[in-house]
């Protein structure tokens, strides 16, 4: 009634579901704001933040970056297999992506355990409040992502697999921004 048939909505060439993009943008805003707040508070106490950063585990986190981007390519390949109706290959890639997600969480768990053993908690210093909030919130997304990848593997269909993979890429995307700002930048 309103749109003439020739007029195309710009949303039409957006790859994947519109809702997953709403989610991706929202998450980027949340983590972007969180990282900006981290840097802003850090400016008020550079020495305190430097001391706190020294207690973190950049090597473990670097390993986790490799784990996560590898898991990401596996999820993308799973989506491609599902598109081509290669169900076995799709499930295999999903299982691989999930396994790496679990590896990420285990490594993260070691980091948290080590900090806890040093008596470092959420309220120890503003830097740790941000560290736990941002990485904890991200880790919760990793856990949710593993679950989602598992769910779409059951009845493998192109559309759900693609949407789940997009969620997983969002988790990846957030991490590659989180990692340098929190662990590396001195």
């Amino acid at each position: 009634m309103t749109d003439s048939p020739t007029e195309t909505e710009p949303f039409d060439d957006l790859p994947g579901d519109l809702m997953i993009w709403v989610l991706i943008v929202s998450e980027l805003l949340v983590f972007g704001a969180g990282l900006a707040a981290f840097l802003a508070v850090r400016a008020t106490d550079p020495a305190g933040f430097a001391t706190a950063q020294a207690a973190l585990h950049p090597a473990a986190a670097a390993l986790n970056t490799a784990v996560l981007v590898t898991s990401g390519v596996a999820a993308a390949l799973a989506a491609r297999s599902a598109e081509a109706a290669r169900l076995g290959a799709g499930r295999l890639w999903l299982a691989f992506a999930m396994a790496l997600g679990v590896v990420f969480l285990v490594v993260k768990g070691f980091e948290y355990a080590d900090l806890a053993a040093q008596g470092i908690g959420v309220e120890s210093h503003a830097a740790f409040t941000f560290y736990y909030l941002l990485t904890g919130f991200h880790a919760a997304h990793v856990a949710a992502g593993v679950l989602i990848l598992g769910l779409v593997a059951i009845r493998l269909r192109p559309y759900p697999v693609e949407t789940a993979a997009a969620f997983w890429h969002m988790v990846d995307l957030v991490w590659v921004l989180l990692f340098p700002v929190i662990y590396l930048m001195g």
């Binding site: 060439d13 790859p15 999820a75």
Partner: peptide
Amino acid sequence: ILGLGLAKARTILATYLRLAGA
């Protein structure tokens, strides 16, 4: 290092999330 992080983010958006085609 921040620049490298942004480059990674762009790669993920372009290829994993297939924005290169749009």
